[in-house]
Simulated assay, not measured.
Amino acid sequence: MHTSRSRARSVAVCVATLCVTGVTSLPALASPSPSPSAVSALDRQLLTAAHQGNLWEIATGRQAQSAATTTCVRRVGADFVRDHRILDAGVVKTAAQLGVALPSGQTAAQLRQTAALKSLAGTPAYDAAWLKAQYPAHTQTLALIDQEIASGTNPLVKSLAKTARPVVARHTQMVNQGVCHG
């Protein structure tokens, strides 16, 4: 009887430990996470491009909040900052899980484009140039997302692409035909 109570108490402690620490912290019980070797060149390309794109969107979105002359572009810039921060958090987390090193900043072309936009700050030309710059950035990202969804190999990266797609599609519509075009 004492052994039965002791065993029941041990089982209860084990169950409580699993609840507190989470099953995934016990490697023998957790499903294996994909190894870095399970990441294709396309998966890596998406993670890298998405991260750099998110950094650019956050930077230009912040810039639009102060440099745009219309409330609409300032509001869209704020939406982009919010959405791309969330998207980038997923990219960074996924890359870390998979052992994929991400670049520390934007591409040289993105930096040049941000500087060119900044030179127009406070003028009506800024708003039009900002919207015009956002459209190809989003359509290129959508094409890469669609390629990843169709041909990517890592399930975590594919899931990330599927989650990002509606956000990027909405942004594309906002800057192409949408909210700030009269």
Rank of each mutant, 00 (worst) to 15 (best):
V91Q: 12
L87C: 04
D88T: 01
L111P: 07
L102R: 06
L98A: 06
R62M: 11
I86Y: 02
W56M: 14
A101Q: 13
A67Y: 02
G77M: 07
Q63S: 13
G105T: 08
G77P: 11
Q63R: 09
G53Y: 04
Q97P: 00
A108Y: 09
T107W: 06
R62I: 03
V100H: 01
G61Y: 15
A101E: 08
A67K: 02
L55I: 11
L87F: 00
S104M: 00
C72M: 07
Q52S: 03
T107C: 05
V92N: 01
A67S: 14
Q65V: 04
Q65L: 02
T60Y: 01
A50G: 15
R112Q: 12
L102D: 12
V81W: 03
K93D: 12
R62T: 15
L55A: 09
I86F: 01
A50L: 10
V81A: 02
Q106P: 10
L55Q: 15
L111G: 14
T70A: 04
D79H: 13
A78E: 15
T69Q: 13
A50E: 14
V92A: 04
A49C: 14
L102A: 08
L55F: 14
T71C: 04
A101F: 03
V92R: 06
T69C: 15
G99F: 03
E57G: 11
A67T: 04
A101N: 07
L98V: 06
H51N: 14
V76W: 01
R74C: 02
L55D: 13
S66D: 14
F80R: 06
F80C: 01
G90T: 01
V81N: 04
V91I: 05
V76K: 04
G77R: 02
A95T: 08
G105V: 01
A95R: 02
V100N: 00
I58R: 01
Q106S: 09
